[in-house]
């Protein structure tokens, strides 16, 4: 049911180590390269952001835990390139052909980078799903937290917020549903809300009685109270 990336609330990770405001954006040259290769490959148009997130989450728990941030990116990308048929296992082993690739016409050129990054990829879409909840209304999240379309699939309801009571703070509009979009099942847009939870609803030993956590949750993650 769970995957190792879903770590909100976990114990045992130790201190957070702040770094100076002037620390380099990329601590190592290969960090920037990993980011750039991943973004550039994404512009080939063979997957969406939910598919690429799920590719990182599907790394084995041992790999996920031991890989650094950009190792997850580059390894998730390699897996995705093979899964989507862009590359073969032989290619990754260095045994593949160097013939021009059918997708080469889609390559992101240097002169297009600025416009491509500035264009972004908005996630809001028109939807006919009726808006079921109004601001201030009490709701409860599904329990267990799990993709209801694909067993073990991608979802954005964290375990720590499953089965919790909260209230609607804000309607963000209607957005692509990751649980569907990560698995080639369509964008399935539906209402997306900011939902407020008292810390005492989520944690056995909250730090302060007035503290809160807000999550952005899709309508199908929520039930009326």
């Amino acid at each position: 049911m769970t995957r190792v990336h879903d770590m909100g609330g976990r114990f045992g990770d130790g201190r957070v180590t702040p770094e100076g405001e002037d620390a380099p954006v990329f601590a190592e040259d290969w960090h920037g390269r990993a980011l750039a290769v991943t973004l550039a490959a994404g512009f080939l148009g063979q997957w969406n952001i939910d598919v690429s997130r799920h590719a990182r989450e599907k790394l084995s728990p041992k790999d996920y835990a031991r890989f650094s941030y950009y190792e997850k990116w580059i390894s998730g990308l390699a897996d995705l390139l093979v899964e989507k048929g862009v590359l073969t296992a032989e290619d990754l082993s260095g045994q593949g052909a160097n013939d021009p690739h059918p997708l080469a016409s889609r390559v992101l050129k240097a002169e297009s980078v600025s416009a491509a990054l500035a264009k972004g990829g908005p996630a809001d879409r028109p939807s006919n799903e009726p808006v079921l909840f109004e601001v201030g209304q009490s709701v409860r999240t599904l329990h267990p937290a799990a993709n209801r379309l694909v067993n073990g699939g991608h979802t954005r309801l964290p375990i720590y917020a499953a089965g919790a009571e909260g209230w609607i703070l804000r309607l963000h509009g209607t957005h692509v549903l990751p649980d569907s979009n990560a698995h080639g099942l369509g964008e399935a847009p539906e209402p997306l809300y900011a939902v407020v939870f008292a810390a005492s609803e989520l944690w056995a030993d909250p730090e302060h009685p007035q503290d809160e956590v807000v999550l952005d949750l899709w309508q199908s993650y929520l039930e009326p109270l």
Binding site: E28, D29, A36, L77, D91, L103, L108, K109, A110, S114
Partner: peptide, 26 residues
Amino acid sequence: PALRVKALETILTRKGLIDPAALDEI
């Protein structure tokens, strides 16, 4: 990791799927 990134970049570049100049720009 650094070699892993380099290897993937090289494979993709040889196939014309990545423009190294675009990576520099990103």
